[in-house]
Amino acid sequence: MTEKDFIPRTYDTFIEKGRVTYKSPSNIALVKYWGKKENQIPANPSISFTLDACATITTVIFSKMESEKDSFSFDLFFEGKPNEDFRPKIETFLDRIEVYLPFLKSYHLTIETSNSFPHSSGIASSASGMSALALCLMEMERKLNGQMTQAHFIAKASFLARLGSGSACRSIEGNLVQWGEHKGTQGSSDLFGIKYPYEVHPVFEKYHDTILLVDKGQKQVSSTVGHKLMHGHPFAENRFAQAHENLSALKGIFAKGDLDSFIKIVESEALTLHAMMMTSQPYFVLMKPNTLEIIQKIWTYREKSGTHVCFTLDAGANVHVLYPEKEKEEVYDFIQKELVLYCENQQHICDRIGYGAKKLN
């Protein structure tokens, strides 16, 4: 598919007003996407676990205006209160997607959004937030186009979400979603995420993710700035090649349920992400001392216990602790006794594998 496949020709239905609500989850990348080209195209493919508890609920109330405006007409509420801070990001998003949803300037939108997790907690709120908004707007288009297939709806929702936040394209479906062209994955695309199309062992279908909130402050480096660090980075091409190699290796690992090999790739990917930031110009160290303490504790415990607990990191100090369902009680007991004391106010979030966004009544 190309961008042109998402530009509608005509609409066969008229709607005056309506209301739609979606709940969309965050996700945690196993193979990291870091670096992008123009129009939110990833420099390398990625794959993620879709989460469940960490989610955004967004409602869009829409009403047809008497005439089309020159600019977008919308009100924005976050957690029940007007929020102007998010307005520029929404305006940029609407501007990017207007060619694909040409009805947008004909409606006034009231956008109401809230998260199930604390804002600035280090959870990827842009992924859940932009995917939820994209789904609501796609639901508007589905009302205008009664011939739309479900497959087209899902692909276009992911395509639009990507234009708001790259990782958001991986939050539409679950439980494993791949984004980015990869010669070893049939149907993979830089334009949208796809459900992982190959065999996945049952052990990966009920994974847990306990998120340790080491630092709840604002990001030291925004995602936009972080991705730009890869332009001219001396190790960028090798990093992009590594992501392709790791995705290829995961095909057999997922099929066999090879947890030891899974751990090696996931932890290596997390550390590589931070290594790229530490060796960029300018350079950043986003881990905190407690991040490293947690990692060392996980390594020691895994060796002693024989469990398959591991960690991954996003571009920040917080730690995602991953472990299979069959080891849930033992590992969570370890987390409570030995890891939460390294969290800010001992705060952590218990999450698990999820299966994508849901439309709410």
Rank of each mutant, 00 (worst) to 15 (best):
W179Y: 08
K4E: 14
D75L: 13
W299P: 00
V99P: 06
W299V: 04
D260W: 01
P202G: 02
H244G: 00
S248T: 12
F74C: 06
Y198W: 01
K251Q: 12
C169D: 10
L109V: 03
Y355E: 08
M140K: 02
I154F: 10
K328M: 08
K32D: 00
K32L: 00
K216D: 14
Q281E: 12
A243F: 03
V203Y: 09
Y100D: 09
F153S: 12
H348A: 10
L94D: 00
S171F: 07
G193N: 11
E173W: 10
T13D: 13
G356C: 13
F204T: 08
V60M: 07
K251M: 12
L339E: 00
S116C: 04
P102N: 11
N361M: 13
S171K: 02
S261K: 10
R170W: 02
R96V: 01
A315N: 02
F284A: 09
H233V: 07
Q242W: 01
K358E: 15
K69D: 10
F311C: 09
N27R: 11
K36R: 13
T312P: 00
N318A: 06
K36V: 12
Y301N: 14
F49C: 02
E293Q: 15
G146V: 05
G184C: 07
R239F: 01
T92I: 03
I97T: 07
S121G: 15
S261T: 04
Y22V: 09
F240V: 00
P88L: 07
K206M: 06
S171E: 09
L135Q: 13
I349N: 08
A124S: 15
K251F: 05
E303N: 13
V31A: 03
M148V: 05
K23I: 14
F284L: 05
Y107V: 02
G80I: 07
R9I: 12
V200A: 02
P202L: 00
Y22T: 09
Q281G: 02
P42M: 03
M138A: 12
Y323D: 01
S280I: 08
N27E: 01
D260K: 13
Y207E: 08
K206A: 15
Y355G: 03
M287Y: 08
E325Q: 14
Y33V: 06
I263L: 02
S223I: 04
S46L: 12
N39W: 04
G316Y: 06
S121L: 02
E91A: 06
I41K: 11
H308Q: 10
F62Q: 05
H348F: 14
F78N: 10
I194G: 05
F49K: 01
L360S: 05
I294E: 11
F117N: 10
A157K: 10
E303P: 00
N318F: 03
L109W: 02
H320M: 01
T149C: 10
K4C: 05
I90T: 08
S106E: 12
P45N: 03
Q186N: 09
Q296I: 05
S223T: 11
D52M: 06
K143L: 11
A124K: 09
C136N: 15
S106Q: 11
K143N: 12
Y207V: 10
